[in-house]
Design a protein around this nucleic acid. Structure first.
Lengths: 106, 106
DNA sequence: CAATCATTTTAACAGTTGTTTAATAGTCAA
DNA sequence: TTGACTATTAAACAACTGTTAAAATGATTG
């Protein structure tokens, strides 16, 4: 994963509505949630939400699948895991005992 | 950690120069790096960098300490760990075997 | 104290982002 | 094929972000 991909993913999540969308999709798992359901749950206009879906999709953080009239969105965990790895790479110069906390990256 | 703190931290990292600064500080560990050294290493004007330090500091991602004429910046891992936890909270509705990969959050 | 070095602040400007409204594009059922 | 439903696109506008150059602050040395 390269710098510009990571910046794009971070920027995509750095907005309240998109962060809320992503978290709902993380909880929902592979099945995903329909666009309209998310719009209702989050009290956001469909047009605004569609704009945000595009940003998240382009960053690779979510995927979509059409089912009848509905479009289901779901989270793609790989990109987020890549992002986290990028942030913590070579933490404390590789000197693990200097900064690692159990169960944490650093 | 609440939503607005997480959004602030993500936004702080969602910029090439700030992401590069943060990663250098992650590698450097608790000792930190002087402002001027970072400016030189990243080929960024001190004024621009100072602006970015403020954004990262305000998000709680970095800390500063004055030593003589120099100001040393260092990474604060807690905020990033909190951010990662927030993103992966209740992943796949808690159904671990549905999405967990060894060594990953999800 | 005056000069110098390291860093921060300010003001100005171009570029980007998020929301709204209205129009458009697919999908389905009668 | 018409009409209803779900979702996306486009244009316009206010608000926010990042960079630059110049001035200002704070710390150190002679």
């Amino acid at each position: 994963m390269d710098t510009s991909q990571v910046v794009e993913a971070l920027a995509a999540l750095a907005q309240p509505t998109r962060l809320a969308v992503y978290r709902l999709l993380v909880v929902a798992g592979p099945e995903g949630v329909a666009a309209g359901q998310l719009a209702e749950k989050l009290n956001v206009s469909p047009a605004t939400l569609s704009f945000h879906f595009k940003t998240l999709s382009h960053a690779g953080l979510i995927e979509s699948r059409q089912d009848g009239r509905f479009v289901y969105y779901s989270a793609n965990f790989e990109v987020m895991n890549g992002m986290v790895g990028y942030l913590t790479e070579n933490c404390c110069g590789g000197n693990a005992n200097e900064c690692k906390t159990p169960g944490k990256q650093c």
